[in-house]
């Protein structure tokens, strides 16, 4: 984008672990201008960190955000329980809302699978960090077989899961299961979540098992490798640890580490969902400037 073109104005709603890493990523974007980071409480650690990074901050949640807008794009990194209210408040403002909480309200977007259509949507949902890691792989596998059952187990480092994530585990599971069903056609999907207290903290790990009667070996592994390559365009720490195709079962383990930003290396869960959010907002900015 040329320097004289207008950058998209964006705001981040939520000053938890996800919101603050997202703010950090946006600050380094050439096409987005971070206008505001909004938290709930004035005293929150997250807002202080955002202010330290030089961001404009406000407390008071959606009310404060509405008072400062309008913005081209708002990222909701708050809490799934509040998201419906946030969308109700923003839908008439012309803002595009990118939801990083696990609700099933906006149009589900996984950049490497259906990201090219995302510019048309004004209310986007990014499923969950586990969904962003699993769905590119599962979608690729599902092009080569007819899954009858899919199971996904994600394990994140304890320190990478904030309070809203912990409160929203049921929504995380339900939203991720629904998105996997819709992107793969699998009739039965089970998602499980672990938090690991191990020290040093382990990277974000997502293990997928696909059961299908009509599997063939060759193309599946290649398809997984190529899906991973595409994800690395916006989440460079995305690595496939193992692909096994055997007896009507595909098992894939991926690990995601965070690279570049201020967040620790283990926090790949934050890196992949925020990387996806940033990519979509930048594509949106390009579409706006045309």
């Amino acid at each position: 984008m040329a320097a004289d073109e207008r950058r998209s104005s964006v705001a981040v709603l939520g000053a938890g672990l996800i919101g603050i890493d997202l703010a950090d990523k946006i600050r380094r974007s050439k096409s987005l201008e971070l206008c505001l980071v909004v938290g709930r409480d004035r005293q929150s650690v997250g807002l202080a960190r955002a202010a330290d990074m030089g961001c404009a901050t406000a407390s008071g949640g959606i009310t404060a955000l509405l008072a400062s807008g309008p913005f081209d794009v708002v990222f909701d990194a708050s809490n799934a329980d509040c998201h419906a209210d946030h969308w109700a408040a923003l839908r008439k403002t012309g803002t595009t809302l990118i939801d990083l909480t696990p609700t099933q309200l906006g149009t589900v977007v996984v950049p490497t699978v259906n990201g090219n259509q995302a510019a048309a949507y004004r209310h986007i949902n990014l499923v969950s960090c586990g969904g962003q890691a699993a769905i590119p792989v599962l979608h690729a596998v599902a092009q080569h077989c007819t899954p009858t059952y899919i199971e996904v187990v994600s394990t994140g480092a304890s320190a990478s899961a904030g309070r809203a994530t912990r409160l929203n585990l049921d929504q995380y599971i339900a939203t991720t299961q629904a998105a996997i069903r819709s992107f793969t056609g699998a009739p039965e999907v089970k998602v499980m979540v672990n938090l690991s207290p191990a020290r040093p903290a382990p990277p974000f790990r997502v293990v997928m098992t696909v059961l299908a009667h009509d599997l063939c070996r060759g193309p599946v592994s290649a398809a997984v490798a190529s899906a991973a390559e595409e994800v690395r365009a916006f989440a460079p720490g995305f690595a496939v640890n193992c692909v096994e195709v055997k007896d009507g079962r595909v098992s894939v383990a991926v690990e995601v580490t965070a690279t570049g930003g201020r967040i620790p290396r283990y926090a790949g869960n934050l890196d992949i969902i925020n990387g996806a959010a940033l990519l979509l907002a930048e594509q949106h900015a390009v579409a706006l400037s045309r």
């Binding site: 394990t155 690991s196 207290p197 790990r205 293990v207």
Partner: peptide, 12 residues
């Protein structure tokens, strides 16, 4: 320091 639920790490 594996915890319950991380059975996937056994094979790794």
């Amino acid at each position: 320091q594996v915890v319950a639920g991380q059975e996937d790490l056994i094979a790794d």
